[in-house]
Nucleic acid binder design. Structure first.
Lengths: 148, 148
DNA sequence: CGCGCTCCTGACCAAAGAGGTCGAGAAAGT
DNA sequence: ACTTTCTCGACCTCTTTGGTCAGGAGCGCG
């Protein structure tokens, strides 16, 4: 139930790439822009690359850029690339656990939790973040009393 | 973004207590009913007690029972008792992080994530789980396509 | 070609958390 | 008294987290 530094870093780096648009952006520039330790960031970008979200080129004019248009990459994509499944219970997907006694209905609750996370994370794209105009699902939720 | 064994255990134990109603239930019986290592369970029950969710008595006719009626205890209460805050980013609440550059809107997304978790976890009570009749928020979410 | 630039990769590390076990003590009942 | 059952701290192993270091490997340019 917590967002790791890695996931946070990954999304922030991806947003920065989305904002840069075309040209390759150097890792060092990303690291400065988002205040992330360079070597940590490089590991993360590498994972994003392995998962097909990012491309890279080395050398003088090298750097990283998004493999897909920014409006086709969701936060869920980025988080999953660096953290695996979005919502696991005891390191296994919620529907795979067997509950005994009175706690069978609990499975359905965990599934609902995952679904609820997905309604947010799979809805917001990097382009949304760059423009600052978030989907209504997010603004509505963030506007609920006591959300802050 | 993952539910620990501890949190899962805690909820299951609490449900079992809710189902038992009045009388004190022995730790060993709970452990068997939910297939939880006894000594682990005892630590968890102790934490629940420290947080005022559970009462206990030692001795021959001792055991554990809920401090409040089952319909006044939510899953969120139980999870928070053993795991602390429901949704943190980098171990701090989402609204407390400062983002630079293009990722400022990210804060609002994390807040929405937390709010979305709360709509589920603060809505389901132990009594709901015992009866098996979950709130519509949950059944609706669990009924969305691809939820399973 | 050669050289510098930048990504790529694995090894490593300290600290914390997860998950679990042991053993001794303190209260409650009979 | 004596047994039962909770109470609680110490301890243990393994994995994860967040981070650092050092060396390669590919790319572009003069």
């Amino acid at each position: 139930m917590r967002v790791s530094a890695k996931a946070d870093y990954a999304v922030r780096a991806a947003v920065e790439l989305a904002a840069a648009g075309e040209g390759p952006v150097k890792g060092e520039k990303l690291a400065e822009a988002q205040d992330i330790p360079l070597q940590v960031l490089e590991h993360i970008l590498l994972e994003l690359k392995h998962n097909g979200l990012v491309r890279a080129r080395r050398g003088a004019k090298g750097g990283y850029w998004l493999a897909r248009p920014a409006d086709e990459v969701t936060i869920a994509d980025v988080v999953r690339a660096v953290e695996g499944p979005i919502a696991d219970v005891q390191s296994t997907p919620p529907e795979a656990i067997s509950y005994r006694g009175h706690s069978e209905p609990l499975r359905e609750v965990w599934v609902a939790v995952r679904a609820s996370l997905r309604t947010v994370l799979e809805e917001v794209t990097l382009a949304d973040l760059v423009s600052g105009e978030l989907p209504s699902v997010v603004t509505d939720l963030a506007a609920t009393p006591d959300a802050w």
